[in-house]
Design a protein around this nucleic acid. Structure first.
Lengths: 214, 214
DNA sequence: TTTTGTGAATTGCTTCACAGCA
DNA sequence: TGCTGTGAAGCAATTCACAAAA
């Protein structure tokens, strides 16, 4: 069962949602949860949840449901967030700074430990928000990636620079890129890209506004 | 053909990508483009593009392709971005400020014209970045929404506050919400929600890292 | 009972392949 | 010839429904 029989990407995305909900349940000292209960808050069917989890193994207990702490551990292992990953970020503009100071990353298993920007007046300076991260010049990227075993990079530069920076990141050894630029990135096989595209989100909402009619 | 025969949501999302690519082509004075050419840069098949566009009408010219300026106009009308929409934003923290100063919105047909935050030391102050937007208290939301005919709201507050703010936005008359909080928002029928979920993106990438093996 | 895990049925989306038009 | 628009075919994802387990 476990891996290899081809897992739908939507199932992986939902796994993240399950994990978050499970963490909330754990915070309330809930010991077990059924697929139906888990799905209710998330608007996902019980069958969907069981099938999603079954792609990765048998974690449930018939008649009982899923044990919350156990399932949290299993899902974290599946997603690879059972240990914290070092992350780099390129682009110390408004968005980049907002991401750096975003608290949510750390307890999700990600830590931004290096920031790059090529503009003169940024390099060498420290980010305002607490943790003393010095902004480095991109030329140092390769050595930093090796030194801290960085596999994931966040791309928060303007669109015209995005592909060039992505190439640099991949050349430096980064294997997964979270892209905020409104551009389709070309990367070699074995490198994963996930894009956050604000225009697409806004236009999708705008379309839905038109469909319902005001 | 046009509306009503049920349009796949993925098709709407791709429409945004087509539009962006078309705008780039127009900037290079390209007059026409075939579905194959349009798809090449985006990694989308020609048949997919023709089918997506056919959900909304017949815009192409056999033997020629699609006329770039014409198709741009048509797609903007479909998405509802042929005229600029007034947008409000709640949450003047790091992320909120980054979004306000983000240039990309305006020429995509969206303008943030009102910002709300309930923390004492924010209300009344002006956002640093250029355009003199005063931060308002949420109690003024309803009147501002009516006054400026706002239908779309951006939610950039911490998770625990998100549902409450969403309720307030909907009560004020907002019909579409772009949500940045890691929470499943409950809204009444007729209100559209689209969520940007960083944890989901990061965990998806983390999973893919594990699948390929380092 | 309750609830899982899973084959079977179904729904939805994408690709194929070709008639028709320029 | 080149290219669109579209029914038919194929594939992928979701839901159904039930045997097995507690």
């Amino acid at each position: 069962m476990s891996r290899s029989e081809h897992i739908p990407l939507p199932a992986v995305r939902r796994l993240s949602l399950y994990l978050r909900q499970l963490e909330q349940l754990q915070a309330r000292d809930r010991q077990t949860v059924s697929s139906r209960q888990l799905g209710e808050t998330l608007g996902i069917s019980d069958a969907q949840i069981r099938k999603d989890l079954a792609y990765f193994g048998q974690f449930g207990h018939p008649g009982i449901g899923y044990r919350v702490p156990e399932l949290i551990h299993r899902v974290r292992c599946i997603l690879g967030t059972d240990r914290t990953s070092n992350v780099l970020l390129v682009g110390a503009g408004n968005l980049g700074r907002a991401l750096i100071s975003y608290r949510g990353f750390l307890n999700k298993g990600f830590e931004i430990i290096a920031v790059f920007d090529d503009s003169r007046n940024e390099v060498g300076h420290t980010i305002d928000g607490a943790r003393h991260i010095k902004i480095q010049h991109p030329s140092e990227m390769r050595s930093t990636v090796r030194k801290h075993n960085i596999r994931l990079g966040i791309l928060a530069v303007p669109a015209p620079a995005a592909q060039g920076v992505a190439d640099r990141m991949v050349a430096a050894g980064v294997r997964a890129v979270l892209n905020f630029a409104p551009v389709r990135l070309q990367v070699k096989d074995g490198v994963a890209v996930s894009s956050v595209d604000l225009a697409v989100h806004l236009e999708q909402l705008s379309f839905q506004l038109g469909s319902v009619g005001s």
